[in-house]
């Protein structure tokens, strides 16, 4: 017998496809959103040849890595920001009385198939950016080009989950979590050296955003880090993602315990 989660996932996909018109609309909207972001990057390079010392080809690689990681995370867990709704309509209670883990159930129930368009688009963009940047391919770089977006997706997912969990304590926290998730998407889309001071320290290294696209891109491009750190840091992406996932799991457990002790 296949895993119950697979059955749940398939059911979720069928549910979403039952709203054909709005499904197509969301698919379209998600693709256009990414188009607008890309347009912004291209416009910036109209007024400057280099951004933080990076050429347009290099910047597009960073942008595409970030976009792919974010799109994957958004597809997998992006809907979890609706957890407040789930608490209110009692879905969380319904999940708690079933013999499966709550977070896996929630992620499956939340699987946003309609965001699949963005993943496809971002992946195509990434492929194009890799070609455009004329990456000098080695087996290690091939592996990193695959591992990096996945690690980045795990990091973003961890931030999505941890951010949504805050809703257990602070109901109106919705938009605050956006500052980290959508803000993180924008942060990772540009070379980290354009930021400075505490802002860079907190988000690039504290939140781990530098490991989503920037350091992996440096490895792929064979460029030294303008910040002076070893370029090999790009290989640390999976480890950073692992730590983030562990922290998010801890926050989630604490949140559920809070929910089960307060019922709100």
């Amino acid at each position: 017998m296949a895993s119950p989660y697979l059955h749940l996932l398939a059911a979720q996909a069928r549910s979403q496809l039952s709203y054909r018109a709005s499904f197509a609309l969301d698919l379209f909207g998600n693709v256009v959103t990414l188009g607008a972001d890309l347009l912004a990057v291209l416009i910036l390079f109209r007024v400057t040849p280099l951004l933080g010392g990076f050429t347009i080809a290099e910047e597009l690689l960073i942008f595409a890595l970030a976009a792919t990681a974010f799109a994957l995370a958004d597809l997998a867990v992006g809907n979890i920001e609706r957890i407040r709704l789930y608490v209110r309509i009692g879905l969380l209670d319904a999940l708690l009385v079933r013999p499966l883990g709550v977070l896996p159930q929630l992620l499956v129930v939340d699987f946003g198939l309609r965001r699949a368009g963005r993943v496809v688009y971002a992946a195509v963009l990434l492929a194009g950016a890799l070609v455009y940047a004329q990456v000098d391919w080695t087996p290690g770089r091939v592996a990193l080009a695959i591992v990096a977006p996945i690690s980045g997706a795990v990091l973003f997912s961890a931030i999505f989950v941890a951010g949504a969990t805050v809703a257990f304590w602070w109901i109106e926290s919705g938009e605050l979590a956006n500052a980290l998730t959508y803000g993180g998407r924008d942060f990772t889309a540009y070379p980290v050296n354009v930021y400075s001071g505490w802002f860079r320290r907190v988000f690039a290294f504290g939140a781990g955003f530098a490991f989503v696209a920037y350091y992996p891109a440096l490895v792929l491009l064979g460029r030294p880090d303008p910040l002076g750190l070893p370029t090999g840091l790009g290989w640390a992406s999976p480890a950073v993602a692992g730590v983030a996932a562990a922290v998010a799991a801890f926050v989630w457990r604490t949140g559920v315990r809070q929910y089960r002790s307060t019922g709100s």
Binding site: T48, G174, E175, L176, G183, V194, Y195
Partner: peptide, 27 residues
């Protein structure tokens, strides 16, 4: 009130992001 605070924080976060990027553009 809570929503206003959250919105101000989010606007500020994006303010930092866009400032750094645009200032990098001036080079």
């Amino acid at each position: 009130r809570q929503a206003t605070v959250a919105a101000a924080v989010t606007n500020s976060m994006f303010g930092f992001l866009r400032s750094y990027v645009l200032l990098a553009v001036t080079g």
